[in-house]
Amino acid sequence: MEILNQISELLQKGKMKDVTELTQKSLSEGIAASKILDDALVKGMSIIGEKFKKNEVYVPEVLIAARAMNAALKILEPELLKNNVKAKGIIVIGTVKGDLHDIGKNLVAIMFKGAGFTVVDCGVDVSAEKFVEEAKKSNADLIGLSALLTTTMVNMKEIVTKAHAAGVTAKILIGGAPVTDNFAREIKADGYAPDAASAVDIAKTFLN
């Protein structure tokens, strides 16, 4: 549908005002909220995510696009709730204890939100207990852990161990500058994502 493509294009450029206007217009033209979400917002964000992965766009563009996405989501949310549209999955996400870096974690949260997931963002400096508690409370499908420092990355192990001990079944996905695939295996996390867009791709394989 032309209007949805238009929203997707404008979203990628970060044009918040145009995106919200056209989202409103699409709803009043009778297009289902879930269709607008999938074919305009999710589509636009996944294109941005792909480009980010390939270094064709940088952090500012992702944040600006997300700003437009959030504004449009606000319009769609009441409709989605009314129609009982289910989220693609639930992810509990946060930066691990001792670490206050949140740009990377926020980008991952944005990508998941953009892919139609419900995101429970625990913020930064999050303890193992908090991750376990939030995962149980929200019945999460996934837990996403972020760390930017070699000194805080080690705290991921404790979280994985405690989550397993507490019987949490959510798959645990880790990422951040110093994190590697090997490290993920070593601490028995379920997966490692090198960037925000890949995190969503990997998460989807867990859910299928």
């Binding site: 500012p60 944040l63 600006i64 997300a66 700003r67 206050l100 949140d102 930064v124 400096d125």
Partner: peptide, 18 residues
């Protein structure tokens, strides 16, 4: 003051990119 943990930081950080 630690500003990155302020609840409005993320929103302002995106807005001020413009």
């Amino acid at each position: 003051k630690e500003i990155a943990s302020h609840p409005r930081f993320q929103e302002l950080f995106a807005d001020n990119m413009l």
